[in-house]
Computed example of a mutant assay.
Amino acid sequence: MMHTDARILVADDHEIVRMGLVLILKQLNPLAIISEVEDYKSLSSRITEENFDLVILDVNMPNGTLQQAMDLIKIRQPKIKILIFSAQDESIYALRYLKMGADGFLQKFSSKEKIDEALSAMLQKGRYLSEDMKELMFSNTLNKQDDSSSIEALSNRELEVANKLIEGLTLKELSNQLNLHVSTVSTYKNRIFEKLNIQSVPELIAVMRVYS
């Protein structure tokens, strides 16, 4: 169980989101010591300099990638609990982030009641999964489906590249954001198209909509 004066780091590039989370956290745990960062670079600095019990982490922030942030957190402070707080589809992304090392996943569109429930669970037990996600995981275990043409066939990095492609980023912009060579990004793009059996970004957008 997390102690009452838990040290919590809220990482999100939208100030209004950070303000809301801090307010809720203070209601749930008045003695909590809460810090805020707005990008991956600041997150890396804080994790290197200070100890935390819980990080509430957005997945799309400037100056880095989620994978880099998760790797750094696990290396610097392996006991930190990580709650991914994202607008992404829980049924597609939650399990991926858990496999990357997160301890919980919470959608930004959740009700106040569910946000309270998730934050309380993270503070008390150090983990959280919604009932819907638990049922989905149970269902997936029972029905081990191997659909090679679904986005489940994509690796975490390929899914990250796919999401950037549907945002309209060029390969050059993508390479700069992900710190990869343009040829490497091109290879990822080709793999994505091959795995999904598609030929263009508009087709990719259509496929992603089916699973969102």
Rank of each mutant, 00 (worst) to 15 (best):
K125P: 01
I56G: 00
A206K: 14
N163S: 11
K74A: 10
D89A: 14
H14V: 14
K79P: 12
S139R: 13
P78F: 07
I33W: 01
V59S: 04
T187W: 08
L178G: 00
E131P: 03
V22C: 09
R7P: 04
V185M: 02
D132N: 12
A118G: 02
F85R: 09
T48Y: 03
V22A: 08
V17Y: 00
D13S: 02
G104T: 09
L23I: 12
L169R: 14
K112Y: 03
E203A: 03
T184R: 13
E49I: 10
Q77S: 09
L119V: 07
K189E: 04
E49K: 01
I24P: 01
S45G: 11
K195P: 02
E152F: 05
N197A: 15
H181F: 14
M61Y: 00
I8Y: 00
L136D: 08
R76M: 13
Q67A: 13
L98Q: 02
S212A: 08
A32N: 06
S139D: 10
Y211I: 05
L171S: 08
R18M: 09
E152P: 09
L174H: 07
T4D: 08
V55Y: 04
F193G: 04
K112P: 08
N29F: 06
I80M: 09
F52Y: 07
G64A: 06
L174S: 05
D147R: 13
N197R: 15
L23C: 10
L28Y: 00
M137A: 15
D12S: 03
E173Y: 11
I16E: 15
